[in-house]
Design a protein around this nucleic acid. Structure first.
Lengths: 154, 154
DNA sequence: TCAGTTGATTGCATTTTGCAAGTGTTTTTC
DNA sequence: GAAAAACACTTGCAAAATGCAATCAACTGA
């Protein structure tokens, strides 16, 4: 089955459904690539996910202290959006009622493979801050790596 | 080797290198997730890649006719940027000197796994336009799928 | 010669972002 | 128990990015 040939035969598969369904849909187009970009295709969303998934961050304060220096208004809007689209859940801390803990939903956890593939791509072409040994392990044991991170939240 | 534990022990691995190298670097931070977002983390870059990789589009005109309706100034700036950062190469058509063909570099082709993982993620949670059979094939034969697309450009 | 195509640019309105300051609530400190 | 600090936002405003229509020069084909 040559998917590419299929897509070439009917490339509209990667683009519209029908003009009707497009009217009901919130998306620019029903192409899955496009939908993914409308959900996490900006400079900040996956960074928040990274902080939660890989660094174990939970609170607004922790996110706001990441080295990319996200502005607090942007952070607030991203946390709201990510929660609204079902990638994050929030709960008030039991110890301190000021603090809100954010954690990934199953939908959010399922983005780990995306982030991993981005990291492996960057590793191949750009200098970055993750030690070689960890990249190598990530590359050779991708499934286990993903499973281990998931396990922290389930 | 528990990568996550390592990262928790020294989470700065996912963020800065040194303050020195950060000054020389064009990136907000040397975290690979961040770098990937600075390269393709916007609403349009991966859409152009999709058009090239999955739909076989080559020219400005073809990209501009995609259903997401990218504005021509944005398209021009994205094509310029993607070429500058080495994801695309351009060459003037032999038949028509006005037409510029864009094709993926090796660095661009290596983004296929990222796009595939995004598609598989979206498939799990959102309605989209790619037939089930093709998603299933993509899921079960991911490596082959990626290799087949690569082969079209090598 | 000349209308039409192509990739790209310009001008301008709209939207999003960045930044500093401020808000309301809760917790800590004295 | 009042003042100060911490936390998660919110607001106001300047700056940047985006969307859109018009336009451009280079080129093509008739």
């Amino acid at each position: 089955m040559d998917i590419f040939a299929n897509l070439m035969r009917s490339p509209e598969n990667l683009i519209p459904m029908t003009t009707n369904s497009q009217a009901n849909s919130p998306w620019r187009s029903p192409c899955p690539v496009n939908i993914s970009l409308e959900l996490v295709g900006d400079k900040w969303a996956l960074l928040v996910l990274r902080d939660i998934l890989f660094k174990g961050f939970k609170s607004f304060k922790e996110f706001s202290q990441s080295k990319e220096r996200i502005a607090t208004n942007i952070l607030a809007s991203r946390l709201k959006f990510l929660t609204e689209v079902g990638l994050l859940e929030s709960e008030v801390s039991e110890k301190d009622a000021r603090v809100i803990f954010y954690k990934p939903t199953s939908k959010g956890l399922d983005l780990i493979p995306v982030i991993v593939s981005l990291v492996l791509w960057v590793d191949k072409y750009e200098k970055h801050s993750v030690p070689k040994a960890e990249i190598e392990w990530m590359k050779k044991n991708t499934k286990k790596f993903i499973a281990e991170i998931r396990a922290k939240f389930e």
